[in-house]
Computed example of a mutant assay.
Amino acid sequence: MSEAVQLPCPTCGAVNRVPAARLADGPRCGQCKTPLFQGKPLALDEAGFRRHLHLSGVPLLVDFWAAWCGPCRVMAPEFEAAAKLLEPRLRLVKINTEEAPALSAELAIRSIPTLALFVGGREVARQAGAMRARDIAAWAERALAATPP
């Protein structure tokens, strides 16, 4: 029997248990029936980030950004393309630092865009600066491989 992982629904927030071996099979929320992975990053506020951070069994790759930031706007479509490359191994999310200043301060986000990878509720890697989709995916894969189980 495959180990199950918890996944908060990106639409209704319900926590779903999905066998790890079935993550790539297009699982749907047991409550609202929407896909648990949608091939694009989730825009989360601070509460949504904390919910996913503490309840998700899938690592989170977070893009900290702001609307006024030119490099952030350049990287946005690349981060979206990276979601198609990395899901369902990772959940990609976007946090607008202007809308979540307390979270940004708590996590010591000093420049944007900044990518941070969280596994098991803790940050395991960070990278500042705009990147292309394939570079985002390669960086995330390397960081995951270097993270002890």
Rank of each mutant, 00 (worst) to 15 (best):
V15S: 02
A146Y: 11
S111W: 14
G48M: 11
G39H: 13
E80K: 13
L103R: 04
N16Y: 12
L144G: 04
K33N: 07
L55R: 15
R126Q: 11
L103Y: 05
A21Q: 13
A21I: 10
C72Y: 03
V15C: 01
Q127L: 13
G120D: 14
W139N: 00
N16C: 13
P101D: 06
A143D: 00
A83S: 15
N16V: 11
R89H: 14
C32W: 03
E98R: 05
P148K: 02
A137E: 03
E46V: 06
E78G: 02
D63C: 04
R142K: 09
R50G: 00
F64C: 02
F64I: 07
R134K: 11
L61N: 06
R17G: 00
T147L: 09
P59C: 07
H54Y: 13
G30T: 08
V58H: 07
L7E: 01
A83N: 10
Q38T: 12
F118R: 04
P71K: 12
K94W: 01
A21F: 04
P35E: 13
P71C: 10
A108I: 00
P149C: 03
I136C: 05
E78T: 07
A125T: 05
A66H: 04
M1E: 11
E106C: 09
W68M: 06
G26C: 08
G57N: 02
V58I: 15
L7R: 11
W139E: 00
V119G: 04
N96I: 04
P41R: 14
A146S: 13
V5P: 01
D135I: 05
A43H: 10
R142F: 01
A125F: 10
L53A: 07
G30V: 06
I112R: 03
Q31F: 14
C72T: 04
A143C: 09
L23S: 10
V62F: 14
D135N: 11
C72R: 09
A82I: 09
P149Y: 05
A138N: 00
C32V: 06
L44E: 02
T97E: 03
E46C: 05
V15R: 01
C9R: 03
D135W: 08
L60S: 06
